[in-house]
Amino acid sequence: MDIYLIRHTTPAIAKGICYGQTDLDVTDSFPEEMLRTKAHLPQTVSTVFSSPLQRCRKLAEALFPQYPIHFHDHLKELDCGAWEMQPWDDIPKEEIDPWMKDFVHVAVPNGESYTRMHKRVVDCFEQIQQHPGPAVIVAHGGVLRSILSHITHTPLKESFDAFTLHYGCVVRLYQNGVGFAHEVLYNHSIEGKEWHRPSKN
């Protein structure tokens, strides 16, 4: 069984802003980015799953117009709670310092921790494995890193260094014995480096 992981295209948001589950639109480069992603996908798939947030929904619907899309809240990005849509540099030091020291276990105020997100994502992924393949998951960077960490047994703390996933990327998972291996089919940045932390850290 093959499962294709696809990250959404570039969101319409300025760099340096904290966002997770905010329902952002996509940029004007969406048609070009969508075609670049599409070139690395199989012509036919069995089932398509997606985060319901529009930056994922629009890509899923554009890539697979002939398929019903199964939307799952468990495939949403990390809930950034009180920090949603705040500039990273404006988040109070007393709030962000504990999170920066242990972002895996410390929850964002009124949001969630990476560990909590990882659990809901893995629960959803294990359900998706029961469907016939090839399957597709269109989701967010944090969600795809959670899945890749799960199948490779990579500690969550190391996942950002282990898995650099640009907007519109495609990663193929394929069965390897009792588990999954992965190969990156497309992972090109048109926007340059992302920045999801305060500039002074």
Rank of each mutant, 00 (worst) to 15 (best):
P134S: 07
K200M: 08
A162M: 14
A39V: 03
F180G: 11
S46H: 13
G111S: 09
Q66G: 11
L53V: 13
Y174A: 07
N110D: 15
K101T: 10
A12I: 00
K93R: 14
D23M: 04
L53G: 01
Y19V: 05
P98S: 12
F180V: 04
G111R: 04
H140K: 08
W195F: 12
S199T: 14
I17P: 01
I6T: 01
I69P: 02
F180C: 11
P52D: 10
L24I: 02
H40K: 03
F125Y: 12
E183D: 09
R197Q: 14
H150P: 09
T164P: 00
K101A: 15
Q21D: 11
V184L: 01
A39N: 10
Q86I: 13
Y174P: 08
S29P: 00
V143E: 04
Q127C: 00
Y67P: 04
A107R: 04
F71G: 03
L165P: 01
L35S: 10
S51I: 10
H188G: 00
K38D: 00
K157Q: 15
K76N: 12
H140S: 08
V122D: 03
W99D: 05
S149A: 15
R116H: 10
L24P: 05
E61S: 12
P87D: 13
K15V: 06
A135D: 06
G81I: 09
W88Y: 15
F125H: 06
N176S: 15
N176M: 13
H182L: 04
W99V: 02
M34Y: 02
I128V: 15
N176D: 15
S199P: 09
T22H: 08
R145V: 03
G179M: 13
W195T: 13
T10L: 05
Y19I: 00
T152N: 12
G16L: 04
D97A: 12
L144E: 04
P52I: 07
C80V: 14
L173F: 10
V26N: 07
Q130R: 12
P134K: 02
P11K: 05
V170F: 01
K119D: 12
T9R: 04
E61C: 08
K38R: 14
Y114N: 04
L53S: 08
H153G: 07
T37G: 05
Y186F: 06
D161V: 13
E112W: 06
F30S: 03
G177L: 14
E126M: 09
H153Q: 15
L148A: 03
R120E: 11
R120M: 06
D79F: 10
K101D: 10
I128K: 03
V45F: 11
L144D: 01
Y67V: 06
L165C: 05
P68M: 14
F64M: 11
V106H: 02
M1A: 15
